[in-house]
Design a protein around this nucleic acid. Structure first.
Lengths: 143, 143
DNA sequence: GTTTTTGCAAACCATTTGCAGTTAG
DNA sequence: CTAACTGCAAATGGTTTGCAAAAAC
């Protein structure tokens, strides 16, 4: 599928700016990208779209479900295409910035379990799981 | 223990600003608080400490281990005392803002497991687990 | 032709920083 | 006394917004 068709698919009116942005977003494949990454790529290609429009488009795409925003606590958002990747979570190295993606039912089950324990009506809420940093100990893992 | 003694315990020189801030921080007990919360409380008590010094102190306290910073993706940090609470993770409702704390070995094990699967040398890194939002389905949990 | 969308520049907001004056030890 | 700390005001950096001009349908 042409990247541009994603706009139609998600019921977003096709404008020059949005076409450039979705194309660049798609060029990252499964990798994460920031608004700045998109802007940089567009500058190179001389397909000029303003910073404001870029943010507006990224927000719109998230809201419509083309993209998913990821907050790694870096002070700015990352995005990824939701389209071709199933639901997954992330492990992020605070040291070197490497991101590991994984999907594991355990996490979702855990959310349900925690809610049950706390007598919390989870189905009323959109929960986000937030882990504090955990330094893996040497003896836990020898790769 | 007097809250002020925490400074001595953590090897932090005792200044007026830091005494006010650690006292207010402690007044939140197990609850999370923001820099703004601390500033608000100090304004009320007329124990005036500047915004800059408040941030400087909060950073120092995190670094020294009195506090732990939590990023709920709200655009500003929350903090909590590390002192009296063991390690735990958080579930955060994007809708109503409610925060559930929990500790579960599963998450830590999961990190190790994911690293193993990905052939990633985890012990070299400080990993942070990041969950995307998951909307709990009604049929998963009936409280 | 009317509604949407865009670019620009200014605004925002949490946090950080430079610097000169003040405090701690 | 000297090093560490503080307040102020300005800077930072990612993101948002008001508005007039331009594009979409």
């Amino acid at each position: 599928m042409e990247t541009v068709d994603l706009l139609k698919k998600y019921n977003i009116s096709s404008t020059f700016a949005r076409r450039q942005i979705i194309r660049q977003a798609a060029s990252f494949g499964q990798r994460h990208f920031s608004a700045e990454d998109i802007l940089k790529k567009m500058r190179k290609k001389k397909s000029r779209v303003s910073r404001a429009s870029t943010f507006r488009a990224l927000n719109l795409f998230c809201q419509k479900g083309i993209l998913e925003a990821i907050d790694l606590g870096k002070g700015f958002n990352l995005y990824e295409l939701t389209d071709n990747s199933g639901h997954h979570d992330h492990l992020y190295c605070l040291g070197c910035g490497k991101i590991l993606e994984f999907e594991d039912k355990t996490i979702e089950d855990l959310q349900v379990e925690v809610c049950r324990r706390k007598n919390f009506k989870a189905f009323k809420h959109t929960l986000r799981i937030l882990g504090l940093c955990i330094k893996c100990k040497k003896d836990q893992l020898k790769v």
